[in-house]
Design a protein around this nucleic acid. Structure first.
Lengths: 206, 206, 206, 206
DNA sequence: GATGAATGAGCCTTCATTCAT
DNA sequence: TATGAATGAAGGCTCATTCAT
């Protein structure tokens, strides 16, 4: 890749990061290109040299971040074996991601709650992300069913329950409630889900 | 109350209902006063005869709906005794409310996820609602602690976990996943939480 | 038609007139909605209450004026009999129209010269107008051919020649060259065309 | 002239040619520096190394082309003797020019119709061109008057009539109407004008 | 009280132009 | 000299809000 191209992509990333912060505060409609430009510290017109428009900027941002998140999650799950290990893989990955992407958390959490209906320029794409996310967690649940560890068999609902609890706890953490580290906070969700959704195994002291 | 005033308040309610539907689709920023007026079937200017402006209309809407929800919830909880009954009171009330206020559900769910950061004109007020909601659920959790039924003692986190799971499942139901009736859907959350967050009592068949 | 509607259409006409003047000075691209609004003496936003946008405003203007012109021309030609009378009908109609629509003249003249290629938002529509105009004049030429008065039989070229000469002379008149009244100016074109394109009739002293 | 300067002027010419094509399609306002640069196959910034700006580029283009046209026309007329020969000199020159400069034709034709009012950055200059063009044709007409061949004595109007007819026929030719060669097309105008504007000479076979 | 019309403010976007490399 | 990048200025358009009827 040429030096020029390198620099260009670097700036592109800088813009995307700044845009993430900007949109995180005001949402798609509540954030103007001026706002983004201010965060990047450049003129609004400059943004158009890197992205076709506000819509594309936001969409790219969402696509990049979610793709990053989902691919990492998929790898983490694939790298684990068994239901419980899969669960941990998910939660660890989420925690790590959350710590590094605070600004983006609100956005992705919202995506899971209705695809940010009405707030995003391309709700369909967000729906795709939602389904992909759900699908990955469902694979974990399927393991639980195969291992006869889960009481319930509707993987969609099980996944929604786990995700909802996780996101909600994460939000509490963001908010300053609970322990200062996200891992401890999320652990509660893990315990509740594990104990609550599984059948006690022989000899296991729960 | 004079007849005139009665009529006025009636219209006010009609507008609020219509506005709820309108805002539900597009969010605060994505919905214009024209949109609201179309739903009400009146001219946009008319709305200003009843509300100071878009902000107030939305704020009133949120305040009314949430006050309605919260007061009902408070009454339900107060009308119950003990931890488990309190839990059921919450879930029953939520289910009933959800069924009757589909249009408003997204909005309230979003409120719990960051106060609909950036999407609402008065995030502070939404934060108040969030805290009030949380506080009510925390009262239930406190019962559980008093009864020594709960393993965990951080009522905030416990409440967030329960609420997150409940809302997420509700959204799945809205989405058409899971059983067609919301009660069955939510029941899963109830089971998980009860089994997951409590200590087994003697003689209890779990 | 309701009173409201009447007023509305009246304002619409006022805007169209003002817009005609504005666009006549600067062309489509060289005239901003601000410019039009200034001519109308209203805010630019007001224009959008009457027309969807700049494109529609211009298009409507062109459509209205040209339809007016063409229908009048068609009637005039139909009301005449024979080649020479048809020619006079055309020239009289043009002269009358030119005197009353100076601001619009440049625009229609340009339309005949390439459809104002690149200057108009909807060149196709302008091409239609051009063809319609040409078609009407061709009908006159056809009479000349039927009467065996014309030497040439390509009605398209004959029409273009006549129209070009007429428009050009009109422009000279607009410019202040030649006689102060348009009729005298145009008469020159009439003479040239009649003598130049026809065969001498028996006994006619030309 | 230094080698460097030679190269510079060469590039200048290349740019002017490309710009002619570019502007021909979209007019002054409808053509961006990007468009011109694309046609030249260089960066937009490069153009500023050769021309002060868009305005100058367009102005130079018009000046060069029209100067070329006018000087050629003047030479052709001066090289002819008598009214009819002058007329032919004009028409031949025009036809030759038209064939070689199709891209520029629209522009010059528009100049004659109101200086391309509003479409050009420097209408005054275009007016000068118009007058110069007109002046040359008037010299031909003056010959006709001197020879007592013309019936009319207003050389301005005579010239406008001839020019208008010629341009209009040329446009028809551009449009694909009439004979495929421009000479035949224009000949019609010649005949009409000669027969129409002159007095029959003794013994002349018309 | 209801509303059509008017408008100021603000947003997204384009583009001619400048500048550092 | 050539150019990618940056930007101020300007334009088209929307919308919440006001006002006269």
């Amino acid at each position: 890749m040429s030096l020029r191209q390198r620099r260009r992509e670097h700036v592109e990333q800088l813009i995307l990061e700044a845009a993430t912060r900007a949109f995180s505060a005001g949402g798609y409609h509540g954030t103007s290109m001026e706002d983004v430009a201010r965060e990047v510290d450049c003129a609004a017109a400059t943004l158009y040299g890197y992205f076709k428009g506000k819509g594309e900027l936001f969409t790219r941002l969402m696509a990049d971040k979610t793709a990053d998140y989902l691919s990492g999650l998929a790898a983490a799950i694939d790298g684990s074996e068994g239901f419980e290990a899969g669960l941990d893989a998910y939660l660890d990955h989420w925690a790590a991601y959350a710590r590094k992407n605070e600004a983006f958390l609100r956005i992705i959490i919202e995506v899971m709650v209705g695809g940010g209906a009405g707030h995003n320029p391309e709700p369909e794409q967000m729906e795709v992300v939602r389904q992909a996310y759900l699908g990955l967690i469902q694979r974990i649940m399927q393991r639980g069913i195969d291992e006869e560890a889960l009481r319930e068999e509707n993987t969609t609902l099980l996944s929604e329950a786990l995700i909802g609890m996780t996101h909600s706890l994460t939000f509490a953490w963001l908010h300053g409630d609970g322990p200062p580290d996200i891992e401890s906070t999320i652990t509660l969700g893990r315990h509740i889900f594990l104990r609550g959704a599984t059948t006690p195994r022989d000899g296991a002291i729960r």
